[in-house]
Design a protein around this nucleic acid. Structure first.
Length: 554
RNA sequence: GCCCCCGUAGUUCAAUGGAUAGAACAGGGCUCUUCUAAGGCCUUAAUGUGGGUUCGAUUCCUACCGGGGGCACCA
């Protein structure tokens, strides 16, 4: 990273000397044939300089002072200037990676920041479906990417434990005679209640009554069912978090932020005006749309609760410098209204808040909906994948095949979500989801396990890595050296898929090399083991950032 | 109707305004007497349409077409 800055400074100096003032963009080359670093400065500045791009590039190169770590600079294509790392630089970097593998890839861009990342957000008494799996996967990866960049991260989970949807579920539990001690059937109960609420006037009245009683906590029998069910629902979620590898620092509940939100609305009558007995915010005045914050019964809606939530977050964690809310993009428009309202009510908090929308998990059969029960639950998907992975794990070298099967299953799910840009929906395809081959999480795990096996063998043979003048596998090492840059981009753009793409590219390069070269028992084994080590540590740390386990054996 | 997101091989996805648009899956053909075949090699195949900006557009702007989401008391 430091070298990149030095090179950029030197280009700027050389350009300045030539009277060229354009912004210098220096990037890692995508195609390593071109070199390691590349700039398009000559193409950008050619017109102003009154020279052809290649001619200008030539002048810039002639003005460059030697840079330590750079072997040479040359012109290519329409006028790119490409820089190549020197062997000494590569050697230094590899030595550094081998001596301190755990910090490899770590950067300091977000040092000093305290960032709260809210994600997953399932509702008790409702199914934990693959949409929640998606939010959890993306949120955890973002959290880890930010931690890698030096930030202190607070993982938060916000859950709707009050409101009509809960009343629907409780009604369903009563109707179907479901035991509130087991959360398995809650999804079905909710679907039953939600359907009845829409289609059946009698049921709607009953459910509204339940909702009122819950709000007042006036019915001891109902309270008992609610409290028991809530506890077991949350415990069921906790089991899934355990499998997925997320540990939350704090759980926020609608029940505790509702009053906070309501108070804020009432304290700002000029912003949240009365209309048809409700309190609304006129988003239209800001090019957005109008939303209801308190309904005509004076009860806080989602919007009001959200207002209370962000305030509660800051009260609890006053050192927070940024607050991210990771959700599906279906609430993008709501969130804009919320953000505008917050800017008027508490601008200092609003400024820190950022909505991070991701695509939706959808089924081939249409939109997933817990209201109709048309959902694939997280547990079902994990179980199906674990079954598939177990078949393979039987023939593996793992000490604990069952554990491996689960780690592979989680990797397969997470990678499928993280390999693509977050904004896009994922059409859930069972066949593809169950695939453990090709461009997949297990592919990365397998490659990692393969590197570890080589390192174990090398260790048994007392072969130590030698980072000097790595010849075979040189291009793999040069690719790996881009890791911190990729990590930086992921952190600043909140886009973990760059890590996933990078890891797959590196793994592919390694596997090709592996199939062509003998690693152990050759003259340059010590150099090759250095390459293997670099790949192993890079993949391990990249997988960690994605929230995927890197087993030692497979 | 208004607002937001998305249109890339048969399919699922990549591509920082740049160099020959990359992978994987599916199809066809090879490859374990050698360090992990969940691997590797070969092979066919794509930027929705029309304008514009630019030295250069998958990327930015615009219109249209297609898909998705949202648009007042659910979340």
């Amino acid at each position: 990273m430091e070298l990149l800055m030095m090179v950029r400074k030197e280009i700027e100096r050389a350009c300045g000397a030539l009277g060229v003032t354009a912004l210098v963009e220096l990037e890692h080359a995508q195609d390593l044939q071109h070199g390691d670093l590349t700039t398009n400065i000559a193409l950008v500045a050619a017109k102003d300089a009154g020279k052809s791009p290649r001619e200008l590039a030539q002048h810039i190169i002639q003005n460059l002072a030697p840079i330590e770590g750079i072997e040479r600079a040359d012109i290519a294509g329409p006028g790119f200037i490409n820089f190549r790392f020197s062997q000494e630089y590569i050697h230094t970097q590899v030595t550094h990676i081998l001596s301190d593998p755990t910090t490899w890839g770590r950067i300091s861009e977000q040092t000093g920041e305290t960032i709260m990342v809210e994600f997953t957000d399932p509702n008790p008494f409702k199914a934990f479906h693959i949409g929640h799996l998606m939010s959890n996967t993306i949120g955890e990866a973002i959290a880890r990417t930010l931690e890698n960049a030096g930030a202190k991260v607070i993982r938060a989970n916000y859950q709707g434990d009050v409101g009509v949807h809960i009343a629907c579920a409780l009604w369903g539990i009563q109707q179907l005679g479901i035991d509130p001690h087991t959360a398995d059937e809650f999804g079905r109960a909710y679907a039953r209640g939600a359907t009845a609420y829409k289609e059946n006037q009698e049921a709607k009245k009953e459910i509204d009554l339940i909702n009122k009683k819950l709000y007042e906590r006036s019915d001891p029998v109902l309270n008992e069912v609610y409290d028991t069910g809530r506890t077991h629902s949350l415990e069921a979620f906790e089991r899934i978090y355990g499998i997925l590898g997320t540990k939350f620092d704090h759980y926020f509940f609608e029940s505790e932020v509702a009053a906070v939100g309501k108070a804020i609305i009432e304290a700002h009558p000029g912003i949240f005006i009365e209309s048809d007995g409700a309190r609304i915010f006129k988003g239209e005045e800001y090019g957005l749309h109008t939303r209801v914050f308190l309904n005509n019964k004076g009860l806080p809606t989602y919007e009001a609760k959200e207002l209370g939530l962000e305030k509660t977050k800051m009260d609890l964690y006053p050192d927070t410098t940024r607050m991210l809310v990771v959700t599906a993009h279906e609430i993008v428009e709501y969130f804009k209204v919320l953000k505008k309202a917050m800017e008027l009510v508490y601008p200092d908090i609003a400024e820190k808040l950022m909505h991070v929308p991701h695509g939706m998990m959808r089924l081939a059969s249409g939109k997933m909906s817990s209201r109709t029960g048309n959902v694939v639950t997280g547990e079902v998907l994990i179980a199906a994948l674990t079954d598939a992975a177990r078949e393979r794990a039987k023939d593996s070298r793992a000490d604990d095949p069952e554990r491996l099967a689960q780690e592979v299953a989680v990797a397969a799910i997470k990678y499928q979500i993280l390999k693509q840009g977050m904004q896009k929906d994922i059409i859930f395809n069972e066949e593809q989801a169950l695939s453990l081959e090709g461009d997949s999480g297990p592919y990365l795990q397998y490659t990692h396990a393969r590197t570890r096996a080589l390192l174990r063998k090398a260790n048994e043979q007392h072969v130590t890595p030698d980072a000097h003048h790595v010849v075979s596998g040189n291009e793999i090492v040069r690719r790996a050296l881009q890791f911190p840059y990729v990590a930086k981009r992921s952190a600043t753009e909140l886009a973990p898929h760059y890590i996933a793409q990078f890891a797959t590219l590196l793994a592919g390069q390694f596997n090709t090399w592996y199939s062509q070269e003998q690693i152990l028992d050759t003259d340059d084994t010590r150099h090759k083991i250095a390459v293997v080590s670099v790949v192993a540590e890079t993949l391990k740390n990249a997988l960690y950032m994605l929230g995927i386990k890197g087993p030692e054996t497979m």
